[in-house]
Simulated scan of single mutants.
Amino acid sequence: MKRTVKAPEVRRAEILDVAGTLFENKGFSSTSVDEIVRTAGVAKGTFYYYFKSKEDVLDALVQEVSSKMAEQSQAIADDPERGAIEKICAIVGAQKGVGEDERNIVDEMHRPENRELHDRLNIETVRVFGAILATVIEQGNKEGVFQVDDPLSTIQFILAGSQLLFGYGVFNWTPEEETARKVAMLTLIERAFAAPPGSFAALTSEKLI
């Protein structure tokens, strides 16, 4: 029987897809390399040709999800027709509208048993989205709607804080408590940006946060 030879990018994508499904169903810690290999139908040597470890697969999955979300955000940030406030609202809204596959992985990352995935995504969020949003804040400075001396550091602190407050339910907020804290967070953002009160009201009225 002739052996099927697949392109490297196809084989790598298949392994990632299988690993992502296993991580979602069983959790990262409960999934072994042997199980990924067996489910994907590849030799262990093939796995190690593409990935150094299970953690390397995890990083690749996070990069994949983060890259897709960042691509959407960067397109919004580059839109010359939008103002800074509109861009920030649109970028936040775009993250709520990610595809089903991405949403499944993101939701799974928020489960306590998948903290490894969650923490890696948090790092990517602060690093990648911080840089994108910083350029929008700089635009807002030029437009006169913001007054932020250090856009990158400011937005990275905000992103890191929001990830801790709302990630994997560590505080066990009730829906009402979570809503109250999101409203408070928007108020803090407006003050940190020196933006007019109510600048980001659309984020709550349109249920984007």
Results as ranks from 00 to 15, higher is better:
I36Q: 04
N141A: 04
N122E: 11
H118Q: 15
D79L: 01
E178S: 12
V183F: 05
T39A: 12
F129Q: 12
E113F: 00
E102Q: 11
Q163K: 12
T39F: 00
F171Y: 15
M69N: 08
E102A: 15
V136F: 12
R38G: 01
A134L: 03
S53N: 05
L133M: 11
V170S: 12
H110C: 13
I85A: 11
R120A: 08
I105D: 01
K142A: 15
F129Y: 12
R103G: 01
L133T: 09
V170Q: 14
Q139E: 15
D78F: 07
S53G: 02
N114T: 05
G45V: 04
S66F: 02
K68Y: 10
Y48M: 05
D119R: 09
V57N: 01
D107T: 10
G41E: 04
T154Q: 13
V128C: 00
K54D: 02
K182Y: 04
V183C: 03
F129T: 05
I85T: 11
I132P: 09
G130R: 04
E178A: 07
K87R: 08
I123N: 11
F51Y: 13
Q156T: 06
A90G: 02
K44V: 09
E64L: 11
V170H: 11
Q156D: 01
V170P: 00
G140T: 07
N122W: 01
G130N: 03
D150W: 07
E108D: 13
A90L: 14
K68D: 08
F51S: 02
Q147G: 08
E102H: 10
Q163T: 13
K52R: 13
Q156V: 01
E108C: 15
I36M: 06
G161I: 02
V37I: 08
K142R: 15
A184R: 13
G161K: 03
F171I: 06
I158Y: 14
V106G: 01
Q139N: 04
E102C: 09
M109W: 14
D107V: 09
Y49D: 00
I158F: 15
E177P: 03
P80H: 03
E138D: 14
F157P: 00
D107C: 11
K87Q: 12
L152D: 07
S67F: 09
I105N: 02
A70L: 11
A77S: 14
E102R: 06
A134H: 00
G99Y: 03
T125M: 10
N122Y: 00
D149A: 15
F51R: 02
E55P: 00
Q72K: 14
F157I: 06
E138Q: 13
S73Y: 04
A43M: 05
T46C: 08
Q147Y: 11
I88C: 02
L117H: 00
R181T: 07
R127T: 12
V126H: 01
E102V: 15
I123Y: 11
E177A: 10
H118P: 00
R181Q: 15
A43D: 10
W173S: 08
A184E: 14
N122K: 08
E143Y: 05
V62K: 01
F166L: 07
T39H: 06
E138T: 10
D119T: 05
T154H: 11
P175M: 02
Q156P: 00
A94L: 06
T174V: 04
A160G: 06
L121I: 07
V92I: 13
I158M: 13
R120Y: 06
L121G: 07
V106R: 09
R181P: 00
K96W: 10
I105Q: 04
A94W: 06
F129N: 08
E177K: 09
G169S: 12
V37M: 00
